[in-house]
């Protein structure tokens, strides 16, 4: 752990809740960010175009319906805990005709996989204990 005041910059940041460079207090996720997503092209237009074209294609009706894909997106948004995606796909699921029951079941799947992913690593622990123990 870094002790408080171990550097003048860190001390100032901790006192003022800034990054030391004059930035406002931390408020990382803002509602206006998502509508600006397209601005990511400013640094590399070609890659952004490819990304958005691919992204759009992914969500079209295919072997899975656009409605089902939106529920998957909602679940993944919770797994990766992206607030922009949660807002966007909560609304998108509603506008694709899903309701709270379906949306809740989708995020329960995400939660189950996240929980299961932690717990199944218990087998690593178990094998370690088996090797180390008598």
């Amino acid at each position: 752990m870094i002790e408080r005041g171990s550097s003048p910059l860190l001390a100032r940041a901790q006192e003022a809740d800034t990054d030391g460079w004059g930035s406002p207090p931390l408020s990382y996720y803002e509602h206006h960010h998502l509508p600006r997503f397209g601005d990511i092209a400013q640094g590399n237009d070609e890659l952004a175009k490819k990304f958005f074209a691919w992204y759009g294609a992914v969500f079209k009706d295919g072997a899975l319906t656009a409605r089902e894909k939106s529920l998957i997106a909602l679940a993944v948004a919770h797994a990766v805990q992206c607030p922009y995606c949660i807002d966007a796909y909560a609304n998108d699921c509603l506008e694709k005709g899903s309701d709270l029951s379906e949306m809740t079941e989708a995020i329960q799947v995400a939660a189950a996989i996240r929980g299961g992913a932690s717990l199944v690593h218990g087998v690593q622990m178990l094998e370690h204990v088996e090797k180390a123990g008598m």
Binding site: A66, R67, N91, L94, E95, K96, G97, D99
Partner: peptide
């Protein structure tokens, strides 16, 4: 006739009819 139960738009009619 379905209409949204809230402040969002109605779903795609043809796709939703199947469900």
């Amino acid at each position: 006739m379905t209409n949204p139960a809230g402040a969002f738009l109605a779903p795609d009619q043809a796709a939703t009819e199947v469900v």
